[in-house]
């Protein structure tokens, strides 16, 4: 049983780290501000989510576990809000409003 828990934990850790790597690769390689913001917002929070899942079996008690989940939820809420703010503040550099819509 503990082998399964260990294997699952390591798998979750790897997925989490992979999403963080994807986030920084996107931040480094994507061509413009808004595309980079996509990578930052989506990949990072998923990475933190998987790392939180990997930490849950090791949590000393239910309070530590709920604190871990709370940190993730708050970070995700903050990231989703902050990304909109940064996206909006970067708007004036790109003159979106002159581009035709779909």
């Amino acid at each position: 049983m503990s082998v399964i828990v260990t294997a699952t934990t390591i798998l979750l850790l790897l997925i989490g780290v992979a999403f963080f790597l994807a986030g920084s690769m996107g931040l480094l390689r994507f061509p413009d501000v808004h595309a980079r913001l996509h990578a930052l917002t989506k990949a990072d929070n998923l990475g933190l989510g998987f790392i939180t899942l990997a930490l849950l079996p090791q949590a000393a008690d239910v309070w530590i576990a709920s604190k871990l989940v709370m940190i993730w939820l708050l970070t995700m809420l903050a990231a989703a809000t902050v990304s909109q703010l940064i996206a909006r503040s970067a708007l004036h550099e790109e003159d979106v409003k002159q581009e035709p819509g779909p």
Binding site: G16, S24, L27, R36, L37, D44, L48
Partner: peptide
Amino acid sequence: MGAQLAATAGVA
């Protein structure tokens, strides 16, 4: 954005 990613990674 770089600082934001550093903060999230720091939390992790």
